[in-house]
């Protein structure tokens, strides 16, 4: 009697798992079309417009070039180890090329080494790997495709120099600490405002690339520094959060916010005149270039070490 119940339970559990596993598979059967090259694009997260744009560009290119594209990401951008697991799993499926936007510049170096050992060429997209770590581990990648984030930050800083002529206090919302992309942007921004003696940096704090944290950090900054006139956020999510905080404090229009990435929502705010500007990367082009160059690598054609993707400041 008991035995039967237990067996039934086991069977039910297995059945449920089996159904879940199979219904989850609604893509084309992997390996169904063996002649087409399989290219994997692993991004940081798929709940940000930036990476969705990148995915769109990659998909378009993949269709044109006849490539099977696999796009994967961790649930959370900060979960570096999970991204590493995804890459490990893709190595197991023996993809032909791997395009990776590393969520950690140093942390993903070991797994790129694993891809090297498995003979899978790697292209790094959007975020650079840490040079020292790359050298130390002796890993190789075919090419880096990405915006010059430092240059983007510098442009934003120079823009503030043009806009403000009086003594002005600025604040910076930083991204996830230790991330190469965010760090370069902030570094670029600081260098960008350096030539202007009237610009002063009042505070610079991380808000982890998230909108709600951008809101909270901005709110605190508004409390601490009542005379802020300009904000640079190293991504648009934080910039939009900061914009909300400024509105909530009834200071809309008094503080100029410049973000980074020029996502759809930020562009709307800029068009409405509520946001000063945003440094536009071109994630769609990044995705497209990644796939195009992946195919080149497969075909043995040479690719450049660094492929800059155009960057510009979007203003009204």
């Amino acid at each position: 009697m008991k035995t039967r119940i237990l067996l039934r339970r086991a069977a039910l559990l297995g059945l449920a798992l089996g159904i879940l596993a199979t219904t989850g598979c609604n893509r084309t059967e992997p390996g169904a079309n063996d002649s087409r090259p399989r290219v994997a694009l692993v991004v940081k997260t798929l709940n940000s417009p930036f990476f969705l744009d990148m995915q769109r560009g990659a998909q378009k290119a993949a269709e044109q070039l006849g490539v099977d594209l696999i796009v994967q990401a961790a649930e959370r951008e900060v979960d570096v180890e999970r991204q590493m697991q995804i890459v490990e799993n893709l190595i197991q499926t023996r993809v032909d090329v791997l395009c990776l936007t590393p969520s950690g510049s140093k942390e993903l170096v070991p797994v790129v080494g694993k891809a090297n050992r498995a003979g899978i060429p790697v292209l790094i997209v959007d975020t650079r790997l840490d040079e020292a770590a790359v050298k130390n581990d002796g890993v190789e990648f075919a090419c880096f495709i990405g915006s010059d984030n430092y240059e983007g930050g510098r442009i934003a800083g120079a823009h503030f120099g043009r806009v403000f002529t009086n003594d002005t206090r600025l604040v910076v919302l930083e991204g996830i600490p230790g991330h190469e992309t965010a760090d370069s942007r902030v570094r670029g921004f600081r260098d960008g405002i350096k030539p202007f003696a009237n610009l002063h940096l009042a505070a610079s704090q991380p808000a982890n690339n998230e909108r709600d944290q951008g809101f909270n950090v901005m709110q605190n900054m508004l409390q601490a520094h009542r005379d802020i006139q300009g904000v640079f956020a190293s991504n648009d999510m934080m910039a939009l959060g900061a914009l909300e905080a400024i509105r909530a404090a009834d200071r809309a229009g008094q503080i100029k916010v410049v973000g980074f990435d020029a996502v759809e929502e930020a562009r709307k705010e800029i068009a409405a005149g509520t946001m000063e500007g945003s440094v536009a990367q071109n994630p769609e082009a990044m995705g497209r270039l990644a796939i195009e160059n992946a195919v080149k690598v497969l075909q043995g054609e040479p690719v450049p070490d660094y492929l800059p993707v155009p960057i510009e400041l979007v203003t009204r």
């Binding site: 339970r9 449920a16 879940l20 989850g24 992997p30 994967q72 995804i86």
Partner: peptide, 28 residues
């Protein structure tokens, strides 16, 4: 998680499935 990656299931659906497995296991 590994299997869902191999099957190219999106990370969103993966979360749904893992949650469902927890509930099904405890319910049973």
């Amino acid at each position: 998680r590994n299997g869902l990656n191999l099957l190219e299931v999106s990370s969103f659906l993966q979360q749904v499935i893992i949650g469902a497995v927890i509930i099904v296991a405890v319910l049973l």
